[in-house]
Amino acid sequence: MTKATSGKTHRADELVTVSGVSAHFAVRSGLLRRRTGTVKAVDGVDLVIRRGETLGLVGESGCGKTTLARTILGLRPADEGEVVFDGHVISQLPPRDLKPLRRHMQLIFQDPYASLDPHATIGRSIRAGLDIHGIGRAAERSAIVADMMNRVGLDPALADRFPHEFSGGQRQRVGIARALVLNPQLVVCDEPVSALDVSIQSQILNLIKDLQADLGLTYLFVSHNLAVVEHVADRVAVMYLGRIVEIADREALFGAPRHPYTQALLAAVPQPDPTHRRTEAPLAGETPSPDVDYQGCRFRGRCPVAIDRCRTQEPELAGPVNGHRTACWRVADGL
């Protein structure tokens, strides 16, 4: 396995180090589907996930959260930059070499209906990881599955049932059990509760936190629900149009957001108080498209406080390493 090649030092407490990662999709059009452009879904992202923490990832729909998460998991190659997982450069590894690392990084899907095989019993779905990696003998596998089902609050006697016999919340528990059965280090949760209603949501969030304490898991938690992210995350990264624009500890980000986009995002959270309704949509303007090249700051067109410099120069993520970092000229200039 390739060891990290970049000159940067890898601190022992960093489980994942993402440096300068981009992920592109070809835009095709016409009858022959010829390539006519490139969608830069992720465009130069630097990110560190530390062992044992929960890093929240929020951002506008379509800004590249899912694509970034899939690149970190090595499910698609990085077009630029590198992803280092636990000391191994995984961003360019062929699938065969990636397989032994797979068991250490898992994904919990958003849709509990689409992510379970309707033709497999839930026991078989949960056991799949053990089968694939040849862990234990049959009896041991069943024992591990039963233990995992207990942990996520499912009766092991239900292992021979099919997914359609379960509710959304129960299915999401199955999805969590399937991801955790390999005892992974990193678990990426891509909107794990957005398909669930509030009461089930809180059960699953509590479960996710409890499992982290019990098993020492590291989470990358993707969500558009800021209340949920505030509830589970230790640090939060905010993404806009393929880039990280702000990253900080939870208290700092929610207490004193600096980037104008983060501020708009926080202001847009619907409050459960019908007496204080907004009359205006909070963020004016159109979301720019990721398939054109930008000069200057990507948020410029919608930013209420943009200055001249924002039009010509792109702000870099600045601030103390591991501290509150922001990509905004206003913040950099201390305005």
């Binding site: 998991l73 499910l75 699938p95 065969r96 990636l98 397989k99 797979r102 068991r103 898992q106 994904l107 899907f109 849709d111 689409a114 992510s115 379970l116 095989d117 309707p118 779905s125 799949a128 990881g129 694939i132 990696h133 999805g175 399937r178 991801a179 390999l182």
Partner: peptide, 12 residues
Amino acid sequence: EYVDAMRVLGAG
């Protein structure tokens, strides 16, 4: 997605 899930688990 459930096919993706198998891929995430490492299935060939």
